[in-house]
Amino acid sequence: MEWYRILGSIITLIGSIFLFLGALGVFRMPDLYNRMQAGTKATTLGTILTLLGIGICHYEWIGQILVIIMFIALTNPISSHALARAAHFKGIPLTKGSVADKLKEKESTEVEVD
């Protein structure tokens, strides 16, 4: 009985469910920032678990898979941060019913000083 293959495929299945939920969040959430929250967190853990499961199934690939996991875990938050910053700079508004926007206050005071 190849128990490690079953373990790996179960981990992969859990990861793919998280990936699906992340994409569902990107589809359903009302504005860009909330979408990005769902997208970044769920896809990071989903990718880590999916790749790790495959690495357990095919244990001779584990080195390459760990390199891809490290790359994804390091770059995914950076790209989402760059996008969020650019979108706020562009003036994309928060959804209706948002509580506060401190960054907007800062940007407007800076304009007044100029």
Binding site: L21, A38, A42, L94
Partner: peptide, 18 residues
């Protein structure tokens, strides 16, 4: 995230804080 995404009326109360 999973809890928020699957609930029918998305329970969020967002804002930008420092």
């Amino acid at each position: 995230v999973a809890r928020r995404v699957v609930s029918p009326k998305i329970p969020i109360n967002p804002g930008i804080v420092t």
